[in-house]
Design a protein around this nucleic acid. Structure first.
Lengths: 230, 230
DNA sequence: TGCAATTATGGTCACTACGACAAGAACTAT
DNA sequence: ATAGTTCTTGTCGTAGTGACCATAATTGCA
């Protein structure tokens, strides 16, 4: 072992930031929260929300703070998990920045535009040329979210507090860009213990038979999984 | 947005390290590479291999370097992936350190002890009281490895270049701490395209019918998965 | 030499989960 | 009333699984 690497006075100094991939579902699209950068570098281009971590701030706290700041979302009603850390020496032109990316999944906030923030369908992001390596971070976040829908109950965190099976299905369809058989989806969701809990109430919007409503159950994992179609 | 957070001269300085969870399988145990710390802090206790990232070094490069350093493992023959980043303000007594943890899966290196490094069965680690938050990092790595065996072909990276189905099965059994039905495991592995490729050769060790040997296939994902028994 | 033990590999069978689809239930709109 | 829409339940053929049995091909020992 190299002794020098443990000399506290001689370690290389890095800046540490958090960047957030905040996803929501507004049928029929999976959408991401983007900010128009108001200053240099990359002024005027689109970027993920984020910022420097304070000296005494935990990483997750920094992410929670940024999330509340940009969306007004109560953290309790959202899912937030660490995504991946990006630390290429070239990723920021100014200095060596290591960014810990977080993935947030929130229910439709119904506040489309606030300040210079905007929800954008993820399929339209290509045209927006994101700043830095944010396109890569976003791609990682989208794939993580799509894959977690398969084997966890996190789909419910995209839904209203009280929702119908059809609303949950529209989450899967939007996120995966597919259509799912309503009858089979219904059967699978109800067959999984702890996925959803019936409220006893029903809800009617538009034509068709009114749907029973449910709340999120207390299970985290899905056994068996809801497999993404090929 | 707070303008001050983008002033390059006023960002908080962090130290960034990589820590490695290096796993191997030596039937019947899943084992991890531990180092006895030769100096303060936590001198004399066991810890995961790791070290500071150099100013112009990519995170993966730093991890690859440390892996080669400690194990002599050729990186091509091993699997290395980013695990999770740990950055609690309290995790190191000296200063604010953010550690990017990596998970490495290597075939049995046959070199049990080199210097102050040692392979330890993961079930015996509790008794060794790891330094800092390394117990948490290790637990995260073990769970990641166990779960990736289910839905990826990474089990082969714990095997010799040419291996038998039984050797692959012993990997799963060691990692999961279970026994698996040999016949059913055999059927499932061969039913998955790209998991293993037959060599046409056989290998005999000890009594019993000689087993055909295989090399790792080019598939990454397992469809359907090999589900861990409850 | 021959037999027992051992491991590899192949096969059967009942059960579960699934996709495709049909059909009934309960509403809205005209 | 009737058509259209959506929710919900049911049916059926197929694929995957675990438990288990059978056979193949070797080693080790009497």
């Amino acid at each position: 072992m190299d002794t020098s690497s443990y000399d506290p006075s001689a370690f290389p100094a890095f800046a540490v930031t958090v960047d957030l991939v905040v996803l929501t579902v507004r049928p029929p699209a999976l959408e991401v929260l983007l900010l128009k950068r108001p200053e240099a570098p990359a002024k005027g281009t689109w970027a993920l929300p984020g910022g420097f971590v304070k000296p005494d701030q935990d990483l997750v706290e920094a992410a929670e703070f940024k999330l509340a700041d940009k969306t007004g979302v109560v953290v309790d009603r959202a899912h937030l998990e660490q995504l991946q850390t990006f630390g290429s020496p070239k990723r920021d032109p100014r200095m060596r920045i290591v960014s810990v990316a977080y993935l947030a999944m929130v229910a439709d906030p119904m506040a489309p535009e606030l300040g210079n923030a905007t929800w954008t369908p993820v399929d339209d992001v290509d045209r927006k040329a994101l700043a830095f390596d944010h396109a890569e971070i976003l791609a990682t976040g989208i794939e993580r979210a799509r894959s977690k829908l398969e084997y966890t109950t996190l789909g419910t965190s995209f839904c209203s507090p009280e929702f119908t099976i059809a609303e949950l299905r529209s989450v899967y369809e939007a996120a995966w860009g597919t259509t799912l058989d309503a009858a089979n989806f219904h059967r699978k969701v109800l067959a999984t213990d702890g996925f959803v809990e019936p409220t006893g109430r029903t809800e009617s919007s538009g034509p068709g038979r009114p749907a029973r409503t449910y709340t999120a159950g207390d299970a985290d994992a899905l056994h068996p999984a809801i497999v993404r179609p090929a």
